[in-house]
Simulated scan of single mutants.
Amino acid sequence: MSLVLPSELVVERFLPAVRGMLARRLADRGLTQQEIAAHLGVTQAAVSKYVSGDPEGDDRFREDPETVATVDRIADGLASGELDGYDALAELVALVRQLEDRGPVCELHEEEMPELRGLGCDLCVRGLDPDVRAERDVLASVRTAARSLASIPGMADYVPNVGTNVGTCLPDPRDETDVAAIPGRIYAIGGRIEIPANPEFGASKHVATAILAATDADPAVRGATNVETDDAILDAARSYGIEPLEFDADYDDRGAHLRSRFDDRGDVPRVAYHRGAFGIEPATYVYGETALDAVETLGDLLEEASR
């Protein structure tokens, strides 16, 4: 993993773009290149290059509305004398902080370090506090689980028509926004598994409902994946000493129904399933401590089912 600091991107991609924008705007307002150089803290030759040469830096900043508005405001202030260098610097520092929080700097940082995707740049904005570390671990679990799911032999044959998903919740989750899953679900296309996006919190209501019901009954169970219900999978579970739990598909509040079934049973089984209902495909949920744990169990069940 390459380590790239957001400050590096600010220096290499943001500052050249903003200096070029400011140089051109100050020139449009009648300032000489020598005056512009004094304001920007660069040489007159650099100003000449900014004004007449090809734009430097990243186009995303030149096209970003907040950057454009800030540069125009600074140019007006410097040209009129209403702003000095301190004021201009304060404006730019505030802009950088804004752009690091889910703005172009955040976007560039995620491109340079794909491991950050899905964190919303909380690493930069909030730092590595315990909550952020927990979120990072959950997202990593789901990302790895999705890749592992795609590598299970024959997995495409067990993906429901509506798609499947993998999910893990944070410790002590409150609602579905504390459950990370794959946005848009995972689909089987042409015999292969298609993962449309990186995991996000609040991305799946269905798998979140199943996970929240399970972790409410047993806090150690925080992950799940779903496949279509198949008797071969249920038989495979029994061969592993897992007695699958059947529940009804057509309850309006499936979460409450699952909690009731878990309470009746006295634990959360590794496998829970329903046979479907009008407009509802049969589905089987495989549980685990994390999404990856659930997917590994599913892999074992599918291998057993194929024998």
Rank of each mutant, 00 (worst) to 15 (best):
M1C: 15
M1I: 15
S2D: 15
S2L: 15
L3N: 15
L5A: 15
L5E: 14
P6F: 12
V10M: 01
V11R: 05
E12Y: 06
P16Y: 07
V18C: 10
G20P: 13
M21Y: 07
L22F: 06
A23K: 08
A23F: 04
R24C: 11
R25S: 14
A27Q: 12
A27F: 12
Q33M: 15
I36P: 07
A37H: 00
T43H: 06
T43L: 10
A45Y: 00
A46C: 02
V51P: 01
S52G: 09
P55E: 01
R60L: 10
R62G: 14
V68E: 04
V68F: 01
V71W: 04
R73P: 00
I74Q: 01
I74Y: 03
A75L: 02
A75V: 03
D76T: 10
L83E: 08
D87S: 12
A88H: 07
A88S: 14
L95Q: 09
L95E: 10
R97I: 06
L99G: 02
D101T: 08
G103E: 10
P104Q: 09
C106V: 11
C106R: 08
C106P: 07
L108W: 05
H109N: 12
E110G: 10
E111M: 14
E112N: 03
L123S: 13
R126C: 00
R126A: 05
D129L: 01
R133K: 04
A134F: 00
E135C: 01
L139H: 02
V142Q: 02
A145I: 07
A146Y: 04
S148V: 15
S148E: 15
G154F: 02
G154N: 01
G154S: 02
M155F: 10
Y158E: 08
V159M: 06
P160W: 02
D172L: 00
R174V: 06
D175C: 00
T177Y: 11
A181F: 05
P183C: 08
G184Q: 09
A188T: 04
G191V: 00
R192F: 00
I195G: 04
P196D: 05
F201Q: 06
G202I: 10
A203I: 11
S204G: 12
H206R: 12
T209S: 14
I211D: 06
T215E: 03
D216S: 00
D218R: 02
P219T: 00
R222T: 00
N226C: 11
N226H: 15
V227M: 11
T229E: 05
A232N: 11
I233S: 08
D235P: 01
R238H: 09
Y240L: 15
P244N: 14
E246P: 05
A249N: 07
A256H: 10
R261M: 02
R261C: 06
V268L: 03
P269H: 10
R270A: 15
A272T: 13
Y273H: 13
R275F: 09
A277T: 08
F278S: 13
I280T: 01
A283H: 09
Y285K: 10
G288T: 12
E289R: 14
E289S: 11
A291R: 10
L292A: 14
A294N: 10
T297L: 15
T297P: 08
L298K: 13
D300Y: 13
L302W: 04
L302C: 06
L302D: 05
E303T: 14
A305I: 03
A305D: 04
A305Y: 03
